[in-house]
Amino acid sequence: MGAQPAAELSAMKTNPKFIFFTDFDGTITLQDSNDFMTDNIGYGREKRRQGNLDTLEEKITFRDSFREMMDSVTKPYNECIQYLVNNIKLDPHFTKFYEWALENNIPVVVLSSGMEPIIKAILKNLLGPSADKMEVIGNFVKARPGKTINEERGWEIEFRNPESGFGHDKSIELRKYSSLPESVRPTMFYAGDGVSDLSAARETDLLFAKKGHDLISYCARENVPFTVFEDWYTILEKCKEITEGKTTVHDAAREGFEAYKSGTAGLKA
């Protein structure tokens, strides 16, 4: 199968020179909505955190660990959405970044291992009408046999790529863009924080990995270049430097490992 034509890719409609792909939970938001549900109305933080660690150590796939997390949440789906809308907060600097991106023809695309209806509801609550300009690509939700999703134990996650150990293999979407001819291929950014981002880590020109989180441990172990971010102010300033030609994605990508080795990435080398 050949590469998909640029005209068929939604984020290429305005012929951008840059595209920003991003994880959602714990990256755009201050809390991970799936972790928040699991910790508070599922089987709890201790078991959830062990699943994250087991995934990093390749003892279990992310898909299977995440399914166990979601299966532990038994409240009706509409109640879960409202619970998260009431509790999940936006990174305080994301709105400014998003406004800058819209003004500069830089599409922002959410690639998430969470469920699209939850993500869209949270974004709509946090960003208002401009949230509709952001493409969201994630997993789905479906009713369990004989039930509806809005009843107790009535729903389950439906993975976008069920054959993949990631459930949603973000690299599949990213490669549609990275495989474009050089004459039209945009520079690709990606921001993430955890184990759901492992499939995306190698696929973009510059990976922003959140300070103190699991993605940095993986990148350092696998020699994947990255730069560290604390919040979206950090990302905005770095993107401005790159788009204005003051630095390159290659220079920025070297910074992360140096920060990891020096201890300023929030994790011990």
Rank of each mutant, 00 (worst) to 15 (best):
K75Y: 15
R63P: 04
Q50L: 15
F94L: 05
T61H: 07
D91K: 05
Y83W: 15
V85P: 04
R63D: 03
T95Y: 13
S65L: 03
E57P: 10
S65H: 02
K75D: 08
T61K: 02
E68G: 11
T61S: 15
Y77N: 03
P92M: 13
S72G: 09
F97Q: 10
M69G: 03
N87C: 04
T55R: 01
D64K: 08
K96G: 07
D54K: 07
V73A: 06
F62I: 07
R49C: 09
R67Y: 14
D91W: 02
M70Y: 06
D64Y: 10
D71S: 03
K75W: 15
L56I: 05
L84D: 03
K89I: 13
M70R: 05
I81S: 04
G51E: 03
T55W: 00
V73N: 01
G51Q: 06
R67T: 15
I60D: 08
I60R: 03
N52Q: 09
K89C: 15
H93A: 07
T61D: 04
M69L: 11
R63V: 07
D71V: 04
S65P: 03
L84K: 07
T55F: 04
C80F: 09
N86C: 07
S72P: 00
S65E: 02
K96P: 08
P76Y: 10
E79W: 06
K96C: 10
Y77A: 02
P76G: 05
C80S: 12
T61M: 04
N87Y: 11
F97W: 14
K89W: 14
I81H: 08
T74V: 08
D54M: 11
V85I: 15
S72Y: 12
D54T: 08
S72E: 01
T74D: 12
I88R: 01
Q50R: 15
S65M: 10
K75P: 00
N78V: 07
L90C: 12
F97I: 05
H93T: 00
K75V: 14
T95W: 12
S65C: 06
F62C: 08
N86E: 15
D64P: 07
K89Y: 14
R63L: 09
V85L: 09
S65G: 09
Y83H: 08
D54P: 02
H93I: 01
